[in-house]
Simulated assay, not measured.
Amino acid sequence: MIISYKINRFNLKCSLVLLIIGYFISKSGAFLMCCGLAILLFYLLKLKFRYLLCSTRFVEYYFPFMMLLTVLLGLAYMSYANDFINFGVLRSITPKFLCNIFAFILRLVDKVFTGRISLGGFSLYYFGISLFGGNIDYSVNTGLKYFVVDSGLLLLLQDWGLIITILMSVIFIMLMRMLMKNKEYALIVYMLIIILWSFNEDIFISVGSNFAFYIFGHELRRRHIKAYE
């Protein structure tokens, strides 16, 4: 992302080589998906498809959408792909052939994201959601050989609470609007990738690795400086 920040200096071949090397070193599906998408988006920007990042509501509401998707995938996994717990009524009212299709798709997605979907589903089942957070308790026996919540979005929701999650959603919607208005295309790409990465890794609540907070502060500062001038 840092190498490709200057769109006019973006080098597709160099980026692809770094992507391949990085994947073989890290063996991370999240790295491959996020960096691959970043390269694709920067390439589209270089081809002057910039209007795609500033003409759609999806970009503006990307953060709350990904938060909702994280929860829905976890609940769907517990409903259709989980063989240990009888969760909800969806499976009982869904035709068997659809249940099998949903289970296959959800297990495939879970495998791509190295178990993040299933672990998120178990976390939602055992610990739920509250206004003020602090729900996750690793001392509770979930019956799994391995249990840890890696999704930064789910950690935000369950550990920080619904109130903070709603506040963060508002902040990120405001930030996307500012970036779209100022035509900060490279920063928009960064925001899209960091939120997608947070779907799989716990970087979202880490100030050291999530530079979105610094971007928000910079945009606010620039906005107020311009207003003052």
Rank of each mutant, 00 (worst) to 15 (best):
Y80F: 15
G128R: 09
L72S: 15
A103G: 10
E60W: 02
Y62G: 01
C99G: 13
A76F: 05
V59K: 00
Y138D: 04
S28R: 00
L16P: 06
I105F: 09
D137R: 10
K111R: 11
G121W: 01
S123K: 03
S123T: 08
C34T: 12
N135R: 12
D137P: 05
Y138M: 03
K96S: 12
R50M: 05
L69W: 14
S79A: 15
F24M: 11
L108C: 13
L73I: 10
L90V: 08
R107Y: 03
R50C: 02
G133H: 02
L32P: 04
G128H: 05
G36Y: 08
A30W: 01
F63W: 14
Y77D: 05
Y43C: 03
L45T: 10
I101H: 09
I105L: 14
G128C: 05
I25W: 03
R91G: 01
F42N: 13
L75R: 11
Y77V: 03
M67V: 15
L106G: 09
L124M: 08
S55V: 01
R91I: 01
L72H: 03
A81R: 09
A76E: 01
F58C: 05
M33Y: 11
F31I: 01
I25Y: 10
L131N: 12
P95C: 07
V17K: 12
S55D: 12
V109M: 12
G74E: 13
S26D: 03
F49W: 12
I101S: 12
T70I: 08
G74K: 11
I136L: 13
K96N: 10
I85S: 02
F127L: 10
T56P: 05
G88T: 05
A38E: 15
S123Y: 09
N86M: 07
G134K: 05
G128L: 01
L32E: 01
S26H: 04
T114I: 14
D137I: 07
L16M: 07
I93M: 02
M66T: 14
Y125P: 02
S26A: 11
L44F: 08
L53V: 06
D83S: 09
L119P: 06
F58W: 08
S123Q: 07
L40N: 03
C54G: 03
A76R: 01
N82R: 07
S123A: 15
K46C: 00
Y61C: 02
D110Y: 00
L68V: 15
S118H: 14
F31T: 00
S118Y: 12
